[in-house]
């Protein structure tokens, strides 16, 4: 399995650079991935989504849909696209150390 050195930590990643073991995630790892995706600095609003994704993934065992982020996470869609332009859920999942969303919605 490929590994990557992110923020001084060696983490397991897949071929697209998504962490394969969420337990290896740390906040500085998330920040470094965000910077690589062109999202810096990470503000409180950015972390709110990351936090929701991680908690929801841990509770449900699958990535939430964008609708669930809106309805269960209480984060408006407009805000999502402002915070993470150009593919909000994909980018945020990568930063959160979670799998790439596999749903069509």
């Amino acid at each position: 399995m490929p590994t990557a050195d992110i923020a001084g930590v060696t983490v397991d990643v897949n071929e697209e650079g998504y962490l394969t073991d969420p337990s290896q995630w740390t906040k500085p790892v998330g920040e470094a991935i965000a910077a690589e995706l062109g999202i810096a600095p990470m503000t409180e609003g950015h972390w709110k989504l990351i936090d929701f994704l991680q908690k929801d993934y841990a509770a449900q065992g699958q990535m939430p849909t964008i609708r669930r982020v809106k309805n269960a996470g209480g984060i408006p869609i407009k805000e999502l696209y402002e915070l993470y332009p150009g593919g909000p859920l994909k980018k945020a999942s990568k930063i959160a150390g979670l799998p790439k969303p596999a749903s069509c919605v």
Binding site: T65, R67, P76, I77, V105
Partner: peptide, 18 residues
């Protein structure tokens, strides 16, 4: 069950997404 929204909500989501 798949979290596919009803049509009015879906239209609103697409619009909010730009």
């Amino acid at each position: 069950q798949l979290d596919i929204p009803p049509i009015p909500e879906f239209i609103e989501m697409i619009c909010d997404a730009g």
